[in-house]
Amino acid sequence: MATSRTGTAQWFNVRNHALRLAQQNDQTQCPYCGIPLDYKNKRAPNGAQVDHIVPHSRGGSDRITNLIVCCARCNQSKSNRSAPKQHTKPQSKPLWTSRKW
């Protein structure tokens, strides 16, 4: 039985690193819709989730330079597009521009 790419220890480490960076950078809102992010309950509609800027299915990598933290609702509505249905691009800086990284 094949396992999910996002179920690997490597992905969990990258995802956790991205979430820590977002919190260190005081990212409190979704860059797509502006809703306040909930870092404690990732399954809530406003739960903080790590999203690929360029979707993996379209050649995007799991590198930190291709990741952004957004709310669960935008992450799910985005699917394999470059932005959620209601927006064209993120409103905040990507994670890799942080001085704390």
Rank of each mutant, 00 (worst) to 15 (best):
A22P: 06
S4M: 07
R15N: 01
Q27N: 09
N16D: 15
N13C: 03
R63K: 14
R63C: 08
N46W: 03
Q49R: 15
P55N: 11
R20W: 07
T3V: 01
G34W: 00
A9H: 06
G47A: 15
R63M: 15
W11G: 00
I68W: 02
Y32W: 07
G34L: 02
Q23E: 11
K42H: 10
Q24E: 05
I64W: 05
W11E: 05
I35L: 13
R73N: 15
M1P: 03
H56M: 05
V50H: 04
L67P: 01
V50W: 05
V54W: 13
H17M: 11
P55L: 13
V14Y: 09
Q23I: 14
K42W: 07
L37F: 07
R15M: 03
G47L: 12
A48V: 00
K42A: 05
A44R: 10
G47H: 08
P45G: 08
D62C: 08
C70S: 08
V69F: 01
K42L: 12
N16Q: 14
N46V: 07
R20K: 07
A44V: 12
R5M: 03
G7P: 02
G7A: 12
D51S: 10
L67Y: 00
A18R: 02
V54T: 08
K42V: 12
A2T: 12
T28N: 15
Q29V: 08
I53E: 04
Q10M: 12
A9E: 14
Q24S: 09
C74T: 11
A48G: 07
C74G: 02
Q49F: 10
K42I: 06
A48M: 08
H17C: 04
A22D: 00
M1F: 06
R43A: 15
V14K: 06
I68T: 08
S57P: 11
G7I: 07
Y39A: 11
A9Q: 14
A22R: 04
N41P: 03
L21C: 13
N16G: 08
C33H: 00
R15E: 05
A9T: 09
A48Y: 00
Q23Y: 13
A44I: 11
T6V: 04
H17K: 13
A22V: 01
A9N: 11
S61P: 03
G7Q: 03
A2K: 11
N25T: 02
G34A: 05
K42E: 10
C33S: 03
D26C: 06
P36T: 08
M1S: 13
A44P: 08
L21G: 10
A9V: 08
I53P: 13
Q24Y: 06
Q10A: 13
N41M: 03
R73L: 14
S61W: 12
N41Q: 06
G60L: 04
Q10K: 09
K40S: 11
P55S: 12
C74P: 03
H17A: 07
H17N: 05
L21Y: 01
H56K: 12
V54P: 01
G7R: 04
C70G: 02
R5V: 04
T3R: 10
N25I: 03
A44L: 14
Q29N: 09
S57K: 14
C74V: 09
G47E: 14
R15T: 10
G47V: 10
H56G: 12
T8S: 04
C70I: 05
I53K: 14
